[in-house]
Design a protein around this nucleic acid. Sequence first.
DNA 1: CGTCAATTTGACTACAATCAAATTACGTGG
DNA 2: CCACGTAATTTGATTGTAGTCAAATTGACG
Lengths: 235, 235
Amino acid sequence: MPYIPTQNAWNGEADCRTCSVRGSVLFAGLQQNDFDLIHQPIDDIAVPAQGRVYHVHEPGARVFTLRSGLVKLVQYLPDGSQRIVRLLRGNDVLGLEALLGQPYQHDAIALTAVELCAIPREVVAVLAREQPALHTELLKRWQQALSDADVWLTELSTGTARARVARLLLRLAGPRPVEAFRLLGREDIGAMLGLTPETVSRTVAELRRQKLLREQGAGLFTVDAPALRRIADGG
Amino acid sequence: MPYIPTQNAWNGEADCRTCSVRGSVLFAGLQQNDFDLIHQPIDDIAVPAQGRVYHVHEPGARVFTLRSGLVKLVQYLPDGSQRIVRLLRGNDVLGLEALLGQPYQHDAIALTAVELCAIPREVVAVLAREQPALHTELLKRWQQALSDADVWLTELSTGTARARVARLLLRLAGPRPVEAFRLLGREDIGAMLGLTPETVSRTVAELRRQKLLREQGAGLFTVDAPALRRIADGG
DNA sequence: CGTCAATTTGACTACAATCAAATTACGTGG
DNA sequence: CCACGTAATTTGATTGTAGTCAAATTGACG
C-alpha cells in the first residue's frame, strides 16, 4: 500500500521574470540580462495539500524552489513502510539531483497547499555557468541539505519517543517560538521519528496534558520551548 | 565522556603528483598540465586506527580522498551520546564542506589504519574552475553523500534490531558477498543503528548461532546474503 | 445528519534498555 | 612465550518503553 493515488501538479504561468524566484536567495544577484539567457519557460506551479511535486525514479527534468508551504521527501523500504527523510519549507530547493541528470530520489509530497517555481535543469546549468555567485549558492544548498540530513538522523531517530517528539516540536515551532504553528498528522510524525502513530498520539497527548504544547484554536499550537528543550536533551 | 584522546594524523610526502589520487575517480581525466596549476602541496597522510582525520568545528582547510581503510563520521547529541552518520571507504571523499569555507560538520575518525590525500581547498577550487569534468564529479560526490545519508536513515534506523543488524551486515559484506570482511566494534555498530552495545551483541550472537554470519578465522566473516536479505526486508 | 478517515484510548505483548556479573580478547611488560 | 591488567564482549535478570491489536471517539466533509 505504498502508493497514494497521485494528485498532479497544476501548471500555471508559462514565464515568470517577475516571479519571486528573483527575490529568493537562490537567484538573488542575478541581473536583467542574465534572465535573457533563459530560453526555456520557468513554470509557476501550485500543488494542493497531499499532491505530489515529483515521484521517485521519475527522470529529473526540473529543479524546484519552494515559495510557500511545506513539502516532505519520502523514501520507501522494501516492506512498503515509509520514512520521511526531510521537510522543506519556504525558499528551500528540491530536486537538485536533476542537475546531474539523475532521476529523483524521493517522493516529494505537499503537506500543505504549496507554491513553487519549476526550473528546467538546462536553465540552472546555463545560469550557473555564467554566474559564479549562483553557482556557489547551489553548492551551499547542496551542503545544507546534507547537513540537514545528518541533523535529522541524529536528532529525530535517537532517544525515547518523548525526546524525539519534543525535538520535532521545537523544530516545527521555529527558531523563536513566538508564532503558532500547525501540527502534522500522527502518521507523518511517526514516519519522521520512526514511531507508530499510536505512540505519537499518546506522547503528544501527554505533552498537552502537561501544557508543554498548547492549542490556540484553529488547530494552531504553541510550545513551552525551555521545558521541551529539557526533555529533548534527555531530561 | 564524548572525547577520545586525540591521536593526530601523521604527515608524509609533501607533494604527490605520482600519488594515487590521480587514479581515483575524482581526479581521473586530469592532464599533466592541470597539475601545473597546483601551487600548494597535496599531502599524503596516514592515520592509525582510532586516529582523527579532522575534528568537528575545526576550520575546513582541506578536502580528503580516502585511498584505503575505513572512516566514520560522528555527530554528537547534547547529552554526549554519539551517532555515526556515515561510513566512508576507498575512493570516497570527505570534508567537502571545506570547499564552501565552512568548518567541518563531524568528527572523522579512522576505524582501521587509513591512507588519504589531503588537498587544500584552494587547489580543488582552481582545478574545478579549469576542469568542468572534475567539477561535475564533485557535484556527483556531493549528491552521492546526500543519497547515502538518506538510505542510511531509512535502512539503518528503521525496524527491529534484527532487521537493522541484517541490513548493516549486508552493507559491510559489499555488493557481492564473496570476500570476507571485518566486523566493527559493538559500540560502533550500536552508534550506527541507534541500539545499545548489549542489544547488538545479542543480535549478532543469534545470527551466528543460526549460521547466517560465519567466522572464517582471523576475525573475518562471511554472510548468508539471501537469508539476511529476508530478515532485512522484514521476514 | 450520516459516512468515512483520523485520532485517541485501552489492554496486552514483545522488544530493547538497563544494571550487573562473568568471560573473553588483547596489549604490555616481565 | 607467558602472566598480568585492562578493555571489550557476552550473558543473565529485570524493568521500561514502544508495538500491536482492537474498540471507542472525534472530526471533516458531503
